[in-house]
Amino acid sequence: MYNQVTKRIFLFCLLGLLLPFHLMAQQISVMAQTDTNSIRIGEQVKLQLTAILTPAQFNDANFKVAFPVLPDSIEHFEVVTRSPLDTVQDGGRHLLHQTFTITSFDSGHWQFPPLRFDVINGAAGDSAFTQPIGIDVNTVAVDTTKAFKPIKAVEAVPWNIMDYWMYIAIGAGIVLLGLGIWLYFSKRKKPMPEEKVPTISPYEVAVHNLKALKDEKVWQQGDIKQYYTRLTDILRTYFEHEFGIAALEQTSEELLANIKPVTKLNQQRDKLRSLLAIADLAKFAKLEPTADEHEACMLKAEEILEWTRPKEEPAEQSPKSENP
């Protein structure tokens, strides 16, 4: 019994002696370095954090080192950028690096605080701290003896053709497209010129129809309404085709109002008015004008046609006439 108690005490003592050595084995070296300790206000400093690991620690899956998480603003310093973690093998050691760009806008001497690295080995954990770094943030020396200088003028950006590549490409594309279209149409066969079919002018049609109406002796056969309907239709069709007045769709009053802009036709206004009045009576009021009135209306229609007859273009001289 006594021996057993003694054995237990011995084992606890041994464990108490060995445990600090085990913890020491977990210790890592950490450090923080800056590329300069003196900056001007707003200048940037590179802060490099390094953790040095032994190969055993590096290869141990349970061994982890957590780098400090720096906020955007830490005391008098601002963190501008942060690099990803980098691993470097240096001899038998493994170095873990992370670089921060920091700056300060407060002038004075400031201490960059110690940063904590967390070391985790399985369930056990420990911390390691870097040394504080003193940084002088200096203001810019102003020479008050010198006069103020004006603001610098806007500097022109040097011209670079690559800035305009898209416009140049679009322009070239349009030129090529135009060229292509021109080539396509110039290579197409030109259609044969159509033979000119002699067209009958509205005047000739109207004269022909009036003559036909006269020859058919419509009113002489007692069809007065038909006579006046055809007579006015011939004139209306002539006005529509010759002067572009939609006469077929207009009433007598509207037609008389709409011929005003056509000076030549407007000069025959009174004749046309009297003709249309008699025609309307014959067509819509069952009134039968006298034979003289029938003739007079035909005469008026012919006179209107003759007055408004378009000037004939000079006929082209045929080669035969030149060489009799």
């Binding site: 009021a285 069952k286 009134l287 039968e288 004008p289 006298t290 009135e293």
Partner: peptide, 13 residues
């Protein structure tokens, strides 16, 4: 005008 259309003429008047 002839007298054949006296009805309309009378009506008109």
């Amino acid at each position: 005008m002839e007298n054949t259309s006296t009805d309309i003429r009378q009506l008109n008047e």
